[in-house]
């Protein structure tokens, strides 16, 4: 065999960890999308834009107020969560009775407005944002160098994903949430204020997106358009995994990230389309999605 066909192991591993990190972003974002859809019946197109907003806020905090990464990791999701609550109360709130299509179109409109504002403020070129000094550099694992920041992102995002899963599947409040997706009337009879629950759920879902945005800021170009293509990949993830299961969303997200990373090594030209290709294959062999409910 021609040795040129061998892929250098460090390159492979590096792409795999990068893929895993991307997968963790997919997991966090599709998780939020699924939670929001479960309760609000709205496919939140604005998820990508709010992820971007999280990253831009982190940048702005640093550049205008000198607020560092660690603070912004909490403050940015908080601000975006509040913005989400305002969006829900002001806009989404009116359309729950309508066909799902209108939810998608309304959040598309919100996306265009948010991206438009950011674009007129910052243009389309990337804003540089450095990783916190504690996390610079890389660790030698013996078989590869793992950049510390990547390791941190992986740990942080998977922890957040699992915590969300635990909260929704194992706690009492979570059980209200799950019941609310089936039948809001019953939950109301337990004395739960369903409209408030819906508002908070949306706030939480988009805060999760903003958290992902802050995590992404030092790794990717912070730019007003950074969420534009991502949201469509997230849609594909959601179609592949189905929105019925939280764990399903997490696993699908991670797996697709890894597959994308592998593709970057084996056939880089296909790396931007591989997720969509997998979606097409899944639709052919298992139309309901991997974790979808029967019909």
């Amino acid at each position: 065999m021609n040795p040129e066909f061998f892929i250098p192991i460090p390159v492979l591993l590096s792409q795999l960890t990068l893929g895993l990190v991307n997968g963790a972003f997919y997991a966090m974002l599709s998780l939020g999308l699924a939670v929001i859809f479960g309760l609000l019946n709205v496919i939140n197109f604005a998820h990508g834009a709010l992820y971007m907003l999280g990253a831009v806020l982190a940048w702005a905090g640093m550049n205008y107020f000198g607020v560092g990464y660690w603070t912004m990791l909490l403050v940015s999701p908080l601000i975006v969560g509040i913005i989400g609550i305002i969006i829900e109360r002001l806009l989404l709130h009116w359309i729950y009775e309508l066909d799902h299509i209108y939810g998608l179109l309304l959040t598309l409109g919100i996306t265009l407005v948010i991206e438009g504002i950011m674009r007129s403020a910052y243009g389309v070129s990337g804003l540089p944002y450095a990783a916190p000094s504690e996390l610079r550099g890389a660790t030698d694992l013996g078989f590869m160098f793992l950049p510390n920041y990547r390791a941190w992102v992986l740990v942080a995002s998977i922890t957040v994903c699992l915590a969300t899963w635990f909260f929704i599947e194992k706690t009492k409040v979570g059980s209200y949430l799950r019941a609310g997706t089936e039948n809001p009337k019953i939950v109301e009879s337990f004395g739960v204020n369903v409209p408030v629950m819906i508002t908070l759920t949306y706030g939480f879902g988009v805060a999760l997106a903003a958290f992902a945005g802050v995590l992404a800021a030092p790794m990717m170009q912070v730019s007003p358009l950074m969420g534009q293509n991502l949201i469509i990949i997230i849609f594909a993830v959601v179609v592949i995994g189905g929105m019925g299961s939280i764990m399903g969303a997490i696993v699908t997200g991670l797996a697709l990230g890894v597959l994308e990373g592998l593709t970057k090594v084996i056939y880089p030209q296909a790396s931007s389309t591989v997720v969509f290709l997998i979606m097409a294959i899944i639709l052919l062999v298992r139309p309901a999605g991997l974790f979808g409910r029967d019909k």
Binding site: I95, L105, I110
Partner: peptide, 19 residues
């Protein structure tokens, strides 16, 4: 320079009150 933003606002208005 803000065509997308204006488009977005029209979307929001249409969906909310002009379906």
């Amino acid at each position: 320079q803000s065509v997308p933003m204006v488009t977005g606002i029209i979307f929001i208005i249409c969906v909310l009150s002009f379906r």
